[in-house]
């Protein structure tokens, strides 16, 4: 069984993907790409769940992944709708130009 890929390999891959996602959120200015980076982070977390499910011999991790996917789908739908509404008002998808949160 030495050929089996250990859990740590999956976890490191997951961490790397997650950090790439964080970096994307931090350095990009295009709202859509930021959104994609967030999806990347979600996928990284999903990978951890599935890996743990495999190595702990439990199905719970996979179930959680299903729920994450459902929530992610909902999030994408609402998020893209917000972006469209925003673009319609601001004529821009650059986060630097959006400061509606300032009181």
């Amino acid at each position: 069984m030495t050929a089996t890929v250990p859990l740590s390999a999956y976890l490191i891959l997951s961490a790397a993907l997650f950090v790439i996602g964080v970096a994307g959120v931090l350095i990009r200015r295009n709202v859509l790409v930021i959104f994609m980076a967030i999806e990347l982070m979600l996928n990284a977390v999903n990978l951890t769940f599935v890996a743990f499910a495999r190595f702990l011999r439990s199905m719970d991790g996979q179930i959680i992944v299903l729920f994450v996917m459902a929530v992610a789908a909902a999030e994408v739908a609402v998020g893209l709708a917000i972006i469209i509404a925003l673009y319609r008002n601001k004529e821009s998808a650059n986060v630097d130009e959006i400061n509606l949160l300032k009181g």
Partner: peptide
């Protein structure tokens, strides 16, 4: 600190 700029908030979260 309250700039209203989402990236700044994200940075502080990170």
């Amino acid at each position: 600190l309250q700039t209203g700029q989402v990236p700044a908030y994200v940075l502080s979260i990170v």
